[in-house]
Computed example of a mutant assay.
Amino acid sequence: MKPFPWTEAMGFGFGVLHLPPAQFWAMTPRELAAAIRAVRGPLNEPIGRAALDELMKRFPDRERTLS
């Protein structure tokens, strides 16, 4: 399990949300996560290798031709 990212959380709470320290420290991690999603939007997981392979098969890179 990864440790909680306190430096990033404090940076977002103080720097982006401009929360006073007492208000920031009164928040739960779940409340902070909701505030982050409200500002940044939902986070999407990166696609897995199988999905990437399928996309590469369906849409292969093509060599560019100079005109």
Rank of each mutant, 00 (worst) to 15 (best):
A51D: 15
Q23K: 12
S67C: 04
G41P: 04
M27C: 11
G11L: 05
V39F: 01
F4M: 08
N44T: 13
I47R: 09
F12N: 03
A9N: 03
A51W: 01
L17W: 03
L66W: 12
F12L: 06
G11A: 13
F4N: 01
L66T: 13
A33M: 05
P21R: 06
A26C: 00
P46G: 06
L52R: 12
V16S: 10
D61R: 12
F4C: 03
L52V: 07
P20E: 15
A26I: 00
M56L: 14
W6P: 00
P5E: 07
P42K: 07
A9M: 05
E8M: 03
I47M: 13
K57Y: 08
G11V: 00
M10Q: 11
P3M: 03
K2H: 05
P60F: 07
E31Q: 15
D61I: 05
A50R: 12
R64C: 04
A51L: 10
P46M: 09
D61Y: 02
E63S: 07
P5R: 04
F12V: 02
E31W: 00
W25M: 10
P5Y: 06
A33K: 07
K57T: 14
E31T: 04
F4V: 09
A51F: 00
Q23M: 05
A22Y: 02
I47H: 02
E54V: 01
F12P: 03
A33F: 03
G15H: 08
L55Y: 08
A35H: 10
P21N: 06
I47E: 14
F14K: 07
P29S: 06
G11N: 15
L66I: 13
A51C: 01
F59E: 13
R30L: 11
A35Q: 14
A33I: 00
M1N: 04
T28A: 06
E31L: 04
T65C: 05
T65S: 12
A9L: 01
E45K: 09
W25S: 08
A34T: 05
L52H: 03
L52F: 08
A35T: 00
R37W: 02
I36K: 12
R40W: 03
L32K: 06
M10D: 06
L19P: 09
F59V: 11
P3R: 10
A26P: 01
A38N: 09
A9F: 02
W6E: 09
A51Q: 14
L32W: 02
K2V: 09
D53S: 10
I47Y: 06
A50P: 00
V16R: 13
